[in-house]
C-alpha cells in the first residue's frame, strides 16, 4: 500500500513577479545610464574631432612614447629585482647594522614620493656637477632618462625587497626544518624549497608593483623625458586639444587592464596545484 493515493495535478509555473523599481535599482540604472551616456558622448566627440593630420603627426609619437614608458619600466623592474635580493636578506639578517641599514633604505624610499626622489636625483645631483665631472659620472647624470632610470630602480628595489621578504617569511618553518632533516645545504634549501613556495606568494604583489610602476612612470614627463605622458603633454601644448589627454588615458587603461588580465591568468595557471 502506498501512502500516496492520488498524484497532484501538474501546476502552471508561478507568475513572473514584476521587477520592483526599488530606489537601489533606480540608482543603479541611472548611474549605469550615466556611464553609458558619457561613453557614447566621448566616442561621438572623439569621432567628431578626428583629425587625420593630428593622428599622422602625433600617432607615431604616442607609440614611441609608449615604447619609452615600457622600456623604462621594464629595465627598472629588472634592475630593482636584482637590487632587492641583498636588501631583503639585509632586512632579514640578524646583524643589527645590516638590518638597520636595509630598513632605513626601505623606509626612506617607501616613505617619500617617487616624484621627490626623481627631483632629488635629477636636480639634486646637478648641484654637484663639478665633483661628478671629476669622477666622470656627469655623462650619466646629465641625461634625464638615466636619472629617471636610477630613481625608479632605487624606488622599486625598496618595494620589491619588502615583497620578497614578506614572501620568504611566509614560508612555514617546518619547510626549513624538513630540508635540514634531509641534509640539504642552505643554498639548496633556499633554491629548491623556499624560493618556489615564496614566489607563489609574491606573484600577486609583483604584478601590482609592475602596474604601480607603469602608472608612476608618468612623472618622468616632468623632467623632460618623452614617454607616453611626455608626448601627450607636448601634443597638448601644441594643439590645445583635450583629446590628446583622452588618448593617453585610453593607452594607459589598455596597458594596465591587459597586464592585470595576463597576470590573473598567469596566477591561475601557476597556482592550479593549490586549488582543491
Amino acid at each position: 500500500m502506498s501512502a500516496v493515493s492520488e498524484l497532484i495535478a501538474p501546476q502552471p509555473a508561478p507568475p513572473v513577479t514584476a521587477t520592483q523599481w526599488t530606489p537601489a535599482r533606480i540608482a543603479g540604472a541611472a548611474l549605469l545610464g550615466l556611464w553609458i551616456l558619457a561613453g557614447i558622448a566621448l566616442v561621438a566627440w572623439l569621432a567628431g574631432a578626428w583629425d587625420i593630420d593630428k593622428v599622422r603627426t602625433y600617432g607615431p609619437k604616442y607609440l614611441t612614447g609608449l615604447g619609452t614608458t615600457l622600456t623604462l619600466v621594464g629595465i627598472s623592474i629588472v634592475l630593482g629585482a636584482v637590487l632587492s635580493v641583498p636588501l631583503a636578506f639585509g632586512r632579514m639578517s640578524s646583524n643589527r647594522v645590516l638590518s638597520g641599514l636595509a630598513y632605513g633604505y626601505v623606509y626612506f624610499f617607501r616613505g617619500t614620493p617617487l616624484i621627490a626622489q626623481l627631483f632629488l636625483v635629477y636636480y639634486g645631483f646637478g648641484t654637484y656637477r663639478n665633483e661628478l665631472e671629476a669622477l666622470g659620472l656627469w655623462v650619466f647624470f646629465r641625461d634625464a632618462w638615466n636619472c629617471a632610470l636610477l630613481a625608479f630602480t632605487l624606488n622599486t628595489a625598496a618595494y620589491q625587497a619588502e615583497i620578497l621578504r614578506g614572501a620568504i617569511e611566509s614560508v612555514a618553518r617546518g619547510q626549513h626544518e624538513g630540508a635540514k632533516a634531509l641534509g640539504l645545504t642552505p643554498f639548496q634549501t633556499f633554491h629548491r624549497i623556499i624560493l618556489p613556495q615564496a614566489m607563489i606568494v609574491a606573484l600577486r604583489p609583483y604584478g601590482n608593483e609592475i602596474i604601480l610602476m607603469i602608472k608612476g612612470s608618468a612623472i618622468v614627463a616632468i623632467v623632460t623625458v618623452f614617454d607616453l605622458m611626455g608626448e601627450t603633454r607636448r601634443a597638448y601644448s601644441r594643439t590645445f586639444d583635450f583629446q590628446t589627454y583622452i588618448w593617453a588615458a585610453v593607452f594607459y587603461l589598455v596597458i594596465v587592464e591587459t597586464l592585470r588580465n595576463i597576470w590573473a591568468k598567469l596566477e591561475q595557471r601557476l597556482t592550479r596545484h593549490l586549488k582543491r
Partner: peptide, 12 residues
Amino acid sequence: FRGLPELLTIFM
C-alpha cells in the same frame, strides 16, 4: 581611476 596614472587624472 585605479588604471589611470594619478598624474594623468590630475591633468585631466
